[in-house]
Write a protein that binds this DNA or RNA. Sequence first.
RNA 1: GCGGGCGUGGCGGAACUGGUAGACGCAAGGGACUUAAAAUCCCUCGGCCUCUGGCUAUGCGGGUUCGAUCCCCGCCGCCCGCACCA
Length: 873
Amino acid sequence: MATERYNPRASEPKWQKAWDQARLFETKNDDPREKYYVLEMFPYPSGRIHMGHVRNYAMGDVVARYRRARGYNVLHPMGWDAFGMPAENAAMQNKVHPKDWTYKNIDTMRGQLKSMGLSLDWSREFATCDVDYYHRQQMLFLDFLAKGLVTRKSSKVNWDPVDMTVLANEQVIDGRGWRSGAEVEQRELTQWFFKITDFAQDLSDALDGLGEWPDKVKLMQRNWIGRSEGLLIRWPLDVASAPGGETELEVYTTRPDTIFGASFMAIAADHPLAKKAAETNPALAAFCHEVRHGGTSAAEIETAEKKGFDTGIRVVHPFDPSWTLPVYVANFVLMDYGTGAIFGCPSGDQRDLDFANKYGLPVVPVVMPEDGDAATFQITEEAYVDDGVMINSRFLNGKTPKAAFEEVASLLAAKSIGNRPMGEKKVNFRLRDWGISRQRYWGCPIPVIHCADCGVVPVPKADLPVKLPDDVEFDRPGNPLDRHPTWRHVACPQCGRSDARRETDTMDTFVDSSWYFARFTAPWEDDPTDPKAANAWLPVDQYIGGIEHAILHLLYSRFFTRAMRATGHLDIVEPFKGLFTQGMVVHETYKGPDGWVQPAEVRIEEADGRRRAALISDGTPVEIGSIEKMSKSKKNVVDPDDIIASYGADTARWFMLSDSPPERDVIWTEAGVEGAHRFVQRVWRLVSEAAPALSGAAPKAATEGPAADISKIAHKTLKAVGEEIGRLGFNKAVARLYELTNALQAPLADIAAGKADAATVSAARQAVEFLVVMLAPMMPHLAEECWAEVGCAGLAAEQPWPQFDPALVVDSEIVLPVQINGKKRGDLTIARDADQAAVEKAALALDFVQKALEGKAPRKVIIVPQRIVNVVA
RNA sequence: GCGGGCGUGGCGGAACUGGUAGACGCAAGGGACUUAAAAUCCCUCGGCCUCUGGCUAUGCGGGUUCGAUCCCCGCCGCCCGCACCA
């Protein structure tokens, strides 16, 4: 009895409409059920969705639909990370307004996402470029400013010469702009900063509490924050050699224990002392200039020689007035870490050793391995950085470095220089404040006004929003707001002076994405959040996105949550309780005579076990290249629209969830998609052919007879799939569903042929219902079609997850593998509840065991209950 | 350089974190149905051998254990993050 093939093109829009009309996915804040907030990182509206989006949103949707079936009140919203450079680039290239370009893209992509059948609450949708959204972001900025969490300071910034804007440290990758790829320059500019460093300690400490985050991400953040414990040491300057007025040099060190191994001081070229000394020393000034303009790219740093210049200044050793050390300006000392000055201990630091060897400075070993000999231990080419015991260090000799650290810290704390202690314990962080000023148009305006009399004046909240002007030109590089004829000219809100001017910098787009998850909890509010709603919904229970945001977005969001808490917008500590970083979608590359070729243009053939590729158009052979992330440059992209049009959304979703573990990359292959599509058709065929017989039967589990096999695997699968989805093991859940489908194949064929008894039909009806409900999170449209076909009421999407019967998931008889000397020799079938003695007796009675023992008693019998029997002969 | 991770069939990957290695899928081969093809269904599928049995096998070499893909030591290879951070 053949049924028609399942037709996703007709089916999918039909069910999407049915869900819409039933308003199944609109979430109410006053729903009394337990909440569950699942969120996928919202997309940048670049134009069209790509396969990475499909994977990301398919995973999130499985979680959302599963949790809904489990009885949670699920929040699953969607929005658009809509400010940023590409809109301005499009404006420059195509003469489109960034706003038009962005909203047009959003419309396209919304339609694409809808065609995926995602269970999203579209009623909460917003784009970060909506005035409604950035208005509230400006309110947050003003609150942060009032709370002292925002500063404006002149600083060296990373300048991207292509995008003509400033980048945060986090946005510089290998010395290049994260977006433009251009080599970054250092410039001195006055910029707005969020004081993320105020929370450095907490941001680092609180990582320990994020139990549902990948260790890798936590480690990356911990390293990025870079907490270190050390000592500030103020070295007295030798009066005779010091420039006028200078009396001390402050250094930061994590190794004060090595203070007797010190042989020089090194300061940054920008250090005040260096600048002062350079005033009277042209050679030194030239050296500083050279260092400042040296390359900053990764390659240059790696190969750069350690270079120094003796300033002629000398410092006095804190523990020996007769001991003076030279002060060098060195190219490897950074002004913006610690104090911009170090003491060099060549024996304990490779860089210091290289420097000392180059300039003929003393190398005194001060730590040696515990089993070393102090009389002969020497350092020549390789510094000793491990733990050990102190030597050549006067009163510290024999101590551990740790004890020596404490000793030096307390002795120097007691000495004083000027009015301060000579030594002071200090915790240092690598983390810098977050520079948010961008010299761009398409971003959230920073709501302040500059007045010649009043200085920086915040825009009064009543005057918000500071709206972006629509009439802007993109005919030149740089910031169109700067050259707008009227927008920037305003009266000072404080004194009324008419010639005040607006801040023309806009905020880094990472600001926009740092709180959108909170806005989703009450996007209709006049204030940035409704604290009640935010506190009820947050933290996000499951956040899903790419590993590339491990530092930037996730760290900024954690900062924002703290800042919003400090300003009363919410009262939670961490924004994301569970974090999952999914892998990329990768694809083979193809290279033809004229460069990269798209997969859609290529036909793959297999001959003699070798795969060959050729152009479909004219058969020209094409080289099969490496498997890489889908990218426009390599042309190895597959358009989700094409896949959905030819196979349907369910096939695309199912393939994305199959095979590869979600955290790893998935290789998109035509064969794989076809396999997924075969499964869609197979489920439909099995269910629809048996449907007439099933629809009249009541679902009922069977506990005995052949029908019991059906019920057992159905209940076992139900248990396993629930557990796997719960831990995001989608590929394993898929495997279990294949198993169940395989097991149902023969019984359903019998039922369709009218060759089954009533108990079998009832058991099968239940098993099919289970199957459909389990498939529903992954292939929601197919599930609806099957659900209706077997005559079930309501929508599959609103069915509760069934309970498995514990009695059916355990077998009364089990098969135990029996090993002899650790090698499997056979099986033992025995009652599940048989005790140890019974198992041993039965095992020893087995033929192959008897044979192996040759009549002798076993030396030992190991029985692991429910697991294995091992007979040691 | 520092930090972290990973190596299992032709391929993607399973294996309850010490207990039957290779679930499930893809690819391949054989067969059935068909005038034929597609679709579908059935069978085989790590390697080797003296093949209703046995040996061997989870990057390589050791170790611990009744038993190791899993734990320990030493190599080899690949991937990722940070990068002159004192």
